[in-house]
């Protein structure tokens, strides 16, 4: 199978999975639903519509093969990895530690050669954002190592 059909294939699998899950949903008694529709009907209808469109898309791809897409550079994959790192740091340490580390590493990853500039950006940005949200907008941030020190 050609690579061009990978996207339609993934979309088809997704649609079929949604239909399978929707079929497992509870049904409501007739007296509640009345002449309207069950909770599962609308998502199933949507996915059938989507499958038809995927069929048309595949036909379009068959007629005119889309241009191959070049694989992204390490900056993109690295940035996605930093999202994962942010998740881990937020869950196990503190959200602001996560933001600091991600900003610092992302600046370096994207080509910043001056370590002190990356460090200042990573320090000042979360600091200013914290002050704005905490003092002005009165947002309470999730507890972590730093927030426990701050909130007590």
């Amino acid at each position: 199978m050609k690579n061009i059909y990978l996207v339609p294939l993934i979309l088809t699998i997704f649609s079929l999975a949604v239909i399978a899950i929707a079929l497992q949903l509870d049904t409501s008694p007739e007296m509640i639903v009345g002449d309207s529709m069950q909770a599962r009907s609308f998502p199933i209808f949507l996915m059938i519509l989507k499958l038809i469109l995927i069929g048309i898309l595949s036909f379009q791809f068959y007629k005119n093969s889309p241009k191959p897409i070049a694989l992204e550079k390490y900056h993109t994959w690295g940035s996605m990895f930093l999202f994962l790192l942010f998740y881990l740091l937020t869950v196990y340490t503190d959200m602001f530690i996560g933001i600091f580390v991600v900003i610092f590493l992302m600046s370096i990853l994207w080509g910043e050669r001056r370590i002190w500039v990356a460090f200042l950006t990573a320090t000042i940005t979360p600091g200013l954002v914290f002050l704005l949200f905490d003092y002005v907008l009165k947002i309470r941030f999730p507890r972590g190592i730093l927030m426990n020190l701050y909130y007590g």
């Binding site: 998740y87 991600v102 900003i103 600046s107 994207w110 910043e112 940005t125 954002v129 947002i139």
Partner: peptide, 29 residues
């Protein structure tokens, strides 16, 4: 403004903005 400075700042604003809406980490994820 260099992209290597601008976009990490956008990241910080995005995650804190997503959190601030309801105060839920789920929104950030």
């Amino acid at each position: 403004v260099p992209t290597q400075i601008l976009w990490p700042i956008v990241f910080a604003l995005s995650v804190i903005g997503a959190y601030a809406f309801q105060g839920q980490l789920l929104d950030v994820w």
